[in-house]
């Protein structure tokens, strides 16, 4: 419960030794400004993460009187669990493909729709709206849309004589279908953040480049993209984190099937933790996922050189 407290209490200590260049009075309010957020996050997120690590070292079940300590056995067992490797693979596949496509499509849409007029605004709203809908509702609607019997997709496809694929029951189509819905859901978010970023690119930079005779492609490559770097960083970090934690959409649409082909790390840990009552094992899965996310995010921040933007 006091993790947040001690961690930043201790870390804050050396501020007295900060270089004279930085006025002393700047440091103290910093922690004051952050206190509410850090207290809440510390108590309700950080400390529970630490607790879950503790669980992962046990054969832990809620309510059991005996929670045997087993060290890293859960982690060793993970390496021998084919379902874990499958889920890890699908999670990485979903993330890599959807984040990449989202950035490309979102960037294209942002460029196409950056100008301000009624038409672009309406189109932007249309693209953005799926993002504000709950994943559960979105998953539900798509499950029905893709239903071979009542769904519009196969209804149209049959009317056109193309047959009616069972999108979510097919071991080869289910995963791409989930990725597609995930892109449908998030592309508006990428677009809107990038549009905002585009507005921040000073017009004189374009002007200068144009005077130098830069082509359209060159403008994008040498003016727009560099200027958007912090925005792209934000978007890709957020998307990657969300995507590595994908749960609701899969849970509603396929439940991880067929034959575990759409199982993700979070659907797996949900099953192990809450259906099979193996909280310790589920916590081990979650820690692997957590470390994966930390590493990927750190790489992204390094790659986009987060530190030099401020």
């Amino acid at each position: 419960m006091t993790t947040g407290d001690t961690t930043w209490g201790v870390k804050a200590t050396p501020h007295a030794r900060t270089p004279a260049r930085t006025p002393r009075w700047r440091s103290r309010p910093a922690w004051l400004f952050m206190a509410p957020s850090l207290a809440i996050l510390g108590v309700f997120v950080l400390w529970p993460i630490v607790r879950s690590f503790w669980y992962s070292l046990h054969t832990w079940t809620v309510g059991a009187t005996d929670q045997p300590f087993i060290g890293f056995d859960n982690y060793v067992q993970l390496t021998r669990d084919p379902q874990f490797w499958g889920a890890l693979l699908h999670t990485v596949e979903i993330t890599a493909v959807s984040v990449l496509l989202l950035l490309v499509i979102g960037f294209f849409l942002a460029l196409a729709l950056a100008s301000e007029n009624l038409v672009t605004r309406i189109i932007r709203s249309a693209f953005f709206f799926p993002y504000v809908v709950s994943l559960t509702a979105a998953g539900l609607v798509w499950r029905f849309l893709l239903d071979p019997n009542i769904g519009l997709v196969d209804g149209l496809s049959k009317a056109l004589g193309w047959g009616a694929p069972a999108w979510l029951a097919s071991t080869t189509l289910a995963l791409p279908t989930i990725i597609f819905v995930s892109i449908w859901k998030n592309v508006g978010f990428v677009m809107i953040i990038l549009v905002a970023g585009l507005k921040g690119v000073p017009e004189d930079q374009y002007e200068a480049a144009r005077l130098d005779g830069a082509s359209r492609g060159q403008l994008v490559r040498f003016v727009t993209l560099p200027a958007l770097r912090p925005t792209i960083l934000f978007v890709s970090v957020i998307l990657t984190i969300q995507s590595l934690q994908l749960f609701d959409l899969v849970y509603v649409m396929t439940g991880g099937g067929p034959l575990f082909t759409t199982d993700t790390l979070v659907t797996l840990l949900f099953r192990d933790g809450f259906v099979n009552f193996q909280t310790g094992y589920a916590s081990a899965i979650s820690w692997v996922l957590f470390l994966l996310i930390v590493i990927v995010s750190a790489l992204q921040l390094k790659f986009f050189r987060y530190n030099d933007v401020d």
């Binding site: 239903d147 071979p148 019997n149 069972a166 029951a169 071991t171 067929p258």
Partner: peptide, 15 residues
């Protein structure tokens, strides 16, 4: 059909 969920099986019959 192969690989139906319960809901899909029901909707096939309903249809």
């Amino acid at each position: 059909p192969v690989g139906q969920s319960g809901a899909e099986a029901d909707s096939l019959f309903s249809a």
